[in-house]
Write a protein that binds this DNA or RNA. Sequence first.
DNA 1: ATAGGGTTAG
Length: 654
Amino acid sequence: MDSTDPRCVHARAITTGAAKANRAVLNNLITLYSKSDLRSDAASVFRSIPSPNVVSWTALTSAFSNSPLSFHHFISMLRHPSRILPNSHTLTSLLKTCATLPALTFGAQLHSVAVKLGFSSELFTASALVSLYFKTGLSNNAKKVFDEMSLRDEVCFSSVIVGFAQNYKPMDALSTFIEMRRSGKASTMVSVSGALRAGSDMAMLEQCRIIHGHAMVTGLNLNVIVGSALIDGYGKCGLVGNARGVFDELGMELNIVGWNAMMAGHAQQGEHGSVIELFTLMEERGMVPDEYSFLATLTALYNAGLVEETEIWFKRMTEEYSLEPCLEHYTCLVGALGKAGRLEEAERIALTMPFKPDAALWRVLLSKCAYHVNMDIAWRMSDRLLEINPMDDSAYVILANAYASAGRWDEVREVWKRMKDKKVRKEGGKSWIEALGEVHVFLAGDRRHERTNEIYAKLTELMEEIEKLGYVPVWAEMLHEVEQKEKKKSLWHHSEKLALAFGLLNGTVPPGKALRIVKNLRICRDCHEAFKYISRLVEREIIVRDVNRYHKFLNGSCNCGDQWATGGGYKRRLRDSEYVSPKVLEEIEHEREMLRLADRLGGEMNHMKLSEAKNQFEEKNSAIRQGNDIKKLGQQSLPETTVQALVDSVIWYG
DNA sequence: ATAGGGTTAG
């Protein structure tokens, strides 16, 4: 036994008599044991303390953090005859457990206790509350707690940045990052990786580049977490080469997360060869592939239309690697089987797998039925989709499109009528394009952009030119009775075409640079066809990130090999709140300048400032605490009603 | 003496 072993320290404490004499020594021992993962030893040290104080109790609950057992210890403390009042350390530790489990009901009770005791705006307690609320999806509550804090350090800022990023509010995450930098807080690996995640969730390449630059100046680019986030970010923005640069730079430092992110980057491009290559290399390096590695592999194979390979790798996952496939793995398999026309088999798997199929899975299968025009099964899938969400527009749209491509117009009208009767609205197409650090959003038929006239003129010009090159409009999915001219127009005004025309105007995307478009739905069949021709016409690379994958158009063809009608595997989740308004991007433009300045000045002073601010805050806060209800009434313990509320809510967690 | 934030996917 070496001298740092807690048992050794314990023995010495007993032999020297320190343990008997000093409660603080034993409190320390509890922490020492729990840090070495010896929880039961920690508990027995606690039991040996004749009159445990709040520190002893907090050390005990912390030893059982991330487990509901800590709640029970806390209740025991409150019920203890010596009437011990929790302090901010106690509540902070418990709130962290609530965030990890998660345990919102109990956490909310703790919040009320924190308010009663005057801790709810304290740095540590409030940070833990912020994390708890973000973890449970209550962004507004988290923001409210954050807003009420009078002192903020880099940790609580990073909780908010990461929290917003995890709650699909990338713009809020980025503006919090900017706010943090403006207030002079140093960037950390956590805040930078959070900001990167926010940027990459929107496939905002420029944003990822700026943050990469910032990471390089601060040296955080060599951090494994930031590096993995960079690989992921570049991958999601479609720059696999840049991702690979970071990947190679970090080399042996990277853990499996970084490897999986790299594989995912290739997978989203449909580069299954590179994914398999990395998979092999990973094993040669002694790393054990996990569920994420397999998801990248299955997505790549499935997106490439390799049905048998998808099946083989799915089997390998369970049989050779003893990994449990999750819903997303099954979605790849079901989609692949569906694509091969094995629809009943795919359905059977969906119904017998150990998970309840979600909307995404039924939608994938529905689209495969539509693809094979197997309308009986398609209707069944559509019903299943509507069971999950009666307002799901895709349940109708896919059916209608399938009938339309088979020329069964009566049925098309029937489906549209049904959809209208149920008051289901079709999600409109939206596309955005990044030009000179700004993002421009377009809806189908949008005329709100300030350069609208130029955009429509450019579009007409482009379409007429490619018709000369042999482009034929693809209107298989449109109603036949619409006038030829009208048909053409509505095809021409799809959001992705508007975005592309804008990107080709003078002063938007510089000549020679790829045009990068992101779309909320699948790219439409006609746009896919038109973009192939346009890429040849204008001799530019056009990159479209749709809900399923990347499409890279160059010199008349697309790297998806027209395998665009897929689904499953990785998805890009796009919500209205994620659409970028140029105004916020202006701020980021400022931020770029500010980052440069801040980095030149260096961030050493921040720590000094922080401790100074902390002292001021403590003075102010002790005044607040003296004025609060409980202390004012001279109570030594929490009111019985509060304790009872805590007890009532703890039963939910066993 | 006891306390808060993290990368893959979704």
